[in-house]
């Protein structure tokens, strides 16, 4: 960054679902639909990309904040499809702390494994989420390498 203050991702709101209240730990689709914690503005992200499915007018925008080749934070905005929201929420949580290269290669089964209770008829949403996540990770600016000096071995 040149002379600009790096903008931080929006903070995560506290979890109010039963997963935390009961100590169950794992969030179900229902938990994530009730509180989509990773849903937040993505405008300040280091990298941002959109996935769409025009036939159903579904849109998902994913923003990534990156530090040293690792996804420090991920946030999303999506059209109001409950399954899409839940999968996007799970995907952003999954992406945080992972190398950008791993996020850039994510496949739908990885995301579906996070939410095994997504029913068969709705599992296609994972393709849209994975595509948006991959696209965002592929947009991450690469660090500028210092130029090689002439005559260097």
């Amino acid at each position: 960054m040149t002379g600009q203050t790096r903008r931080r991702p929006p903070p995560l709101p506290p979890c109010t679902s039963a997963c935390c209240a009961t100590g169950a730990g794992r969030r179900t689709v229902g938990d994530r639909v009730r509180t989509t914690r990773w849903s937040a503005p993505t405008g300040d992200a280091d990298a941002c990309a959109e996935g769409t499915r025009p036939d159903e007018r579904l849109v998902l925008r994913v923003g990534l904040w990156v530090e040293g080749g690792t996804v420090a934070a991920a946030r999303f905005r999506a059209t109001t499809c409950a399954t899409l929201l839940a999968l996007a929420d799970a995907a952003c949580e999954w992406a945080e702390g992972r190398p950008v290269a791993e996020v850039a290669a994510v496949a739908p089964p990885v995301l579906l494994a996070l939410l095994p209770d997504v029913p068969e008829g709705r599992r296609d949403r994972a393709s849209l989420v994975a595509a948006a996540l991959r696209a965002a990770a592929s947009c991450v600016p690469r660090p500028i390498q210092p130029p090689e000096q002439e005559g260097a071995p």
């Binding site: 179900t28 689709v29 229902g30 639909v33 499809c81 409950a82 399954t83 839940a86 209770d117 709705r122």
Partner: peptide, 8 residues
């Protein structure tokens, strides 16, 4: 779908 998810 949302109602079904919320009721697990």
């Amino acid at each position: 779908d949302q109602c079904v998810y919320e009721r697990n």
